[in-house]
Design a protein around this nucleic acid. Structure first.
Lengths: 337, 337
DNA sequence: ACTTGGCACTCGGGCTAATCGAGTGCCAGG
DNA sequence: CCTGGCACTCGATTAGCCCGAGTGCCAAGT
């Protein structure tokens, strides 16, 4: 379909356009890359590329810019993920290493990613559904209220107030806590629904009402609600790339947790870097952005995803390299705890 | 200095400019407000106002726009905080009432505030220094690592990994936990430093090394580190007001926790709404924005602050009303737990 | 002393015309 | 299939122009 040189031309167009942000013409192309042909030849190639939908000219007589389809081909066939130098890796490692707790790790990750790519970074907390319970704690608040604190093996701490149907005493709480920890400890959160179903039997009859309230809150919190938590950073990088008038839309989209989830979640391939370009994101308002995402965590223990969002005119090789490198180290650090 | 009519003129200029975003001239002024004088008279007044620095003309021959000093006078003398209607209050209340835990309350607050004011909302978590300990929990992670979880009476849950100098057994942890809870429960976090100093005596000698590690982490976490946590929402509202080229700067500033702290913290008057206009914010990059902030929490128990950030060209009465109303209800809800 | 109508003046925004040049498509020849 | 040549297109830039909103000032009126 497309011979080698046409591919090379497309690659050159993408690279030039990404770095200059201006439509690239045939002359500039032969100058800046060592294609040993004349501009006229390039023009013929470009005509073909345009006909096939890989590039377009914004105005009748200006250079060409890549289409989504063009970027897609570039990412799939024409570029390699840019590896990071040893020095860069060390920098990443030390930057992340200073973090104390999960919040800190996630915050640093997002900052780092935004800085490395000069794009908007998006990092998802370790997914609850992929975590296991490490500890459950019940703290009395008032007569009929408990604070339920649930700690996962990925370091997430979820809290929730429980309203009890009846008042309680210290002993019954101790007992309930013991039962909960005994039964839930180490269980995957996905399995918890079934485990909880059997729990009432293990509680003294007169405490069952209160226990049931606690159980239902556990289920509700972990299964139904905001189980995913995502943070965003580096929004100021969006001002560099000029979204005609869509900046507002993009910012709005990035404030919606649900949208972010879809953005990261759409690709279910865990281990390799995935790229969604322009209209491939069926999120309204992000039609003119690309998403580079990857799962993090060890191979046998995927935790969640992270990535960057930026204009389709993005340095994909570098972004992919950064995302992959950061994911690796973040996963590593979280695996240690 | 300025007679009544000049004041009225300034008020009219501010109001018109805020609503139209265009320099306002003498004719428009007499038309839209019932000033019973001619445009020429207004022009004389405007000349005086300009001489005194309350207004300027962006171009030699265009209408006037208020200066920071003009807005300041407007806020101090010429406007009243806009009260919210009963219906609006009810809406706020029900919107906030559905929240389960602290995170949820804060998130909803920030969303609500952004929506009501159409500005960027900034909400600080209940300040640790004003909280008391409700519960301390130690969760074993590995041989020599503990997860320290600290729950405050304001609902904040802080976590931190502790590296121990020696290995430990279940019993010693139980004991340590008991000591910690016995001694710290109910104590203000500001007092904790002194309390912790006396703790080692109450631990068995052979456990002192580990205990000391835990204590130092407690101090470090609560006193030294990121004790303040602030979240931001509604950044997309910034695109409406056109910051000539400072949008980037503004976004950057809003991503810096430290900057946000200074923004909210600068005014130490807890109970009343404070407004900082333009250059009054000595934060670089926010010289062209205004901050409307107020403390929340009950009078005898201030918790933290919240507010909005927007262009100096802002509807101050409404913003102040919204900030005050939201602070009231958020404080109320947090007081209940 | 303040207000008012009149009037000349300023200057930014918007419109049109003209020019420039990057870049194209196509063709004929190698 | 590549190449140099050439006519053509059209966006961007510049210059010139006009219009009108808005001003400052002044002289006259209350």
């Amino acid at each position: 379909m497309l011979d080698d040189r046409k591919m090379a031309v497309l690659r050159a167009i993408v690279e030039d356009y990404v770095s200059t942000n201006e439509p690239v013409g045939s002359r500039a192309l032969v100058d800046r890359h060592n294609l040993d042909v004349s501009p006229a030849t390039i023009r013929n190639d470009m005509a073909v590329l345009e006909e096939q939908g890989y590039i377009v000219q914004p105005h009748t007589s200006a250079g060409r810019i890549p289409t989504d389809k063009g970027y897609r081909l570039f990412v799939d066939k024409l570029s390699a993920i840019k590896p990071f130098s040893a020095a860069e890796r060390r920098a990443i490692e030390t930057f992340l290493a200073g973090a104390y707790d999960l919040d800190e790790v996630v915050m640093r990750t997002v900052r780092l990613l935004a800085q490395l790519t000069r794009q908007v970074a998006v990092v998802q907390y370790p997914s609850l559904s992929k975590s296991a319970v490490r500890h459950v704690e019940l703290v009395p608040l008032t007569e009929r209220r408990l604070l339920l604190v649930l700690i996962t093996d990925t370091g997430r701490v979820e809290q929730r107030v429980v309203e009890l149907p009846a008042s309680f005493d210290e002993d019954s709480i101790m007992q309930l806590r013991a039962v909960l920890n005994a039964c839930l400890d180490g269980r995957k959160l996905t399995d918890i629904a079934t485990v909880v179903a059997d729990l009432p039997e293990r509680v003294e009859p007169r405490e069952r009402a209160n226990a049931a309230a606690v159980f239902s809150v556990i289920l509700e919190t972990l299964v139904a609600r905001h189980e995913e938590k995502i943070i965003v950073g580096g929004a100021s990088n969006l001002t560099a790339a000029d979204f005609s008038q869509g900046l507002r839309q993009v910012l709005e989209a990035l404030e919606e947790q649900v949208v972010l989830m879809r953005l990261l979640g759409e690709s279910d391939d865990q281990s390799s870097v995935t790229v969604r370009i322009g209209a491939e994101n069926d999120v309204l308002g992000l039609r003119s952005t690309s998403v580079v995402a990857v799962g993090y965590g060890s191979a046998d223990r995927p935790l969640a995803k992270l990535g960057v969002v930026g204009p389709t005119r993005m340095d994909y090789p570098t972004a992919m390299g950064a995302v992959r490198a950061v994911a690796r180290y973040t996963g590593q650090i979280l695996a240690e705890s």
